[in-house]
Amino acid sequence: MTNALAILINAAPEQLARLGVDPQRSVASIDVAKFDNRPAWDNKGKFDSRPGWDKKK
């Protein structure tokens, strides 16, 4: 395991919080069958490209 990965795994909870990782984050086992391996741009909701003034309608 790389040192960088080990640094993250062994980091103090308050350090992880600096990365936006909630120390109390609830997790289920990582199941490959359910693991969303799509690139980030493909696993979000449909992108709303309407300008702001059009969303208020």
Partner: peptide, 23 residues
């Protein structure tokens, strides 16, 4: 980053399963 956060949380909790690769 969400994916890494999930991995870190699962690993730190001892919940990572090394399941077969999804084909």
């Amino acid at each position: 980053m969400d994916r890494l956060a999930d991995y870190l949380a699962a690993t730190r909790a001892g919940h990572v399963d090394h399941a077969p690769y999804e084909p």
